[in-house]
Amino acid sequence: MAEVANGGDVLGMFLAIGIPLLLTFGPISFSAIYGSFYQKGKMNKLLEREKGVGGAFKDPITNLSKPIGNKKILNSSLMWESVVIGPSWWQMLLGWIGSLFGGRLNAFTDIYDWARREALQRLREKIISSNFDDIINLRIETSMMSSSNKSKDKTAAMEIVAYGTAVKYE
């Protein structure tokens, strides 16, 4: 009888400490672990797609205002693609801690790098699917979408838009 009560006490203690701990650190550790897996998966997919279209040496995108060489242009059109990106809670925590000391914030570097490359890759795929050859005069704009500091909304979002003139050669 005493042993059963003891077992109940241990279980009670375990629950009393375990549940608050889980509620406090559960979401943030979920964010850290699952978030990093998820973002790595996305990055790997992007790397695959970059091998298929574009890549470093046959990239159809330039930011020159005229294409290189004397190629005759048949037609052209404005094209744009955008990505809205939000860092995970874990990354925001790391960023907040990092901002106390200053210096390099590796937590954000990866995700913003991914977003910018994703926008460019979408642009590449878009011009190929709409039968253009190259993009000239590329511009990349970045804007914050987060709301004012006073609001309770904690969503942090950044929008990246890449736009340029798609051209078709003769």
Binding site: Y38, S82, S88, Q91, M145
Partner: peptide
């Protein structure tokens, strides 16, 4: 989008919203 913010990554709802607006 707030839920998606836990793990980070693209917020597709906002991407669509802004594409439409642009």
């Amino acid at each position: 989008a707030g839920f998606k913010n836990i793990i980070g990554g693209e917020l597709k709802a906002y991407t669509e919203l802004l594409s439409e607006a642009r």
